[in-house]
């Protein structure tokens, strides 16, 4: 298998722009010389990955402009050969890459937001916990119950108006000017049935969600709310928040350990 292995190694290195060694293994016949034939594959490699990035990052591309996006994409493709069995996952690290490569926070945040939308799109299914299910749980169990959140839930903190830009572009084709905010705003993205939804959270809601995400029991949720509400309002606020999460199909079950 040594010859086959060498050939594949040389071929792949040509696609990755690392070596021309494969040229000597390819028949060179007019009117299409070996390098043109090989370049069909090399160009195809780049174009396929570029197309995958364009599909996943439509608004980022509009925000950057096609030319600048192409430059960044080429750089990303050059430094990130694909380890993924499906090209659907190829753009996974673009937001991290943009954070390193540009000083425009809005670009990396837009990339992060658009990527998490794609993750929510085909995340795992789950049955949901309904308000009726919840009402059937005996009150004595409430303090120790822990909540299991929907597998599509994604959380992120944004310091720019990336979501407003995304919405404006998607709804009206208008690109808003990027702006940085004074404080970081927590956002969640999830799938409810087949629809992808997102919303921002206020600080108290975010605290509650962090507590739930960490697998802490209801008792801890209420304790944490003491920071935001008067003692007599804590249980009501916790119940209201849980009800909202259930109606949004964000809680899929409870456990007691």
């Amino acid at each position: 298998m040594r010859e086959l292995q060498k050939l594949q190694n040389d071929f792949q290195n040509y696609l990755l722009d690392k070596s021309n060694a494969i040229m000597t293994a390819v028949v060179d016949i007019e009117p299409v010389p070996a390098n043109i034939r090989l370049n069909v594959y090399r160009d195809g490699y780049y174009l396929r990955l570029l197309e995958a990035l364009e599909q996943d990052y439509e608004v980022l591309r509009a925000l950057m402009g096609a030319e600048e996006f192409d430059v960044i994409a080429r750089d990303y493709i050059h430094t990130h050969p694909s380890h993924f069995r499906s090209i659907r996952w190829y753009g996974k690290d673009l937001s991290f890459f943009l954070k390193e490569k540009t000083n425009q926070l809005c670009l990396s945040e837009m990339a992060q937001f658009e990527w998490l939308l794609t993750e929510a799109f085909d995340a795992a299914e789950s049955d949901i916990l309904t308000v009726e299910d919840m009402a059937a749980i005996p009150p004595k169990k409430w303090p120790v119950m822990r909540f299991i959140l929907h597998p599509s839930l994604r959380q992120l903190n944004l310091q720019t108006n990336a979501v407003a830009i995304w919405q404006s572009f998607k709804e009206n084709g208008i690109l808003l000017t990027p702006e940085e905010t004074q404080i970081s705003v927590p956002w969640i993205i999830w799938r409810k049935e087949l629809d992808i939804l997102f919303c921002s959270l206020d600080p108290a809601e975010n605290d509650m969600l962090q507590t739930l995400s960490a697998g802490m029991p209801f008792k801890k949720l209420c304790e944490g709310l003491g920071k935001w509400f008067d003692e007599e309002k804590v249980a009501m606020q916790a119940a209201l928040f849980l009800k909202r999460l259930m109606l949004d199909h964000l809680i899929v079950g409870v456990k007691y350990k």
Partner: peptide, 20 residues
């Protein structure tokens, strides 16, 4: 073949027509 060394070129790459 689509790649080696755990990489995927996301293309249907040609094989040499050999007994090997």
């Amino acid at each position: 073949w689509t790649g080696i060394h755990d990489l995927n070129m996301h293309d249907l790459l040609p094989l040499p027509y050999t007994m090997e």
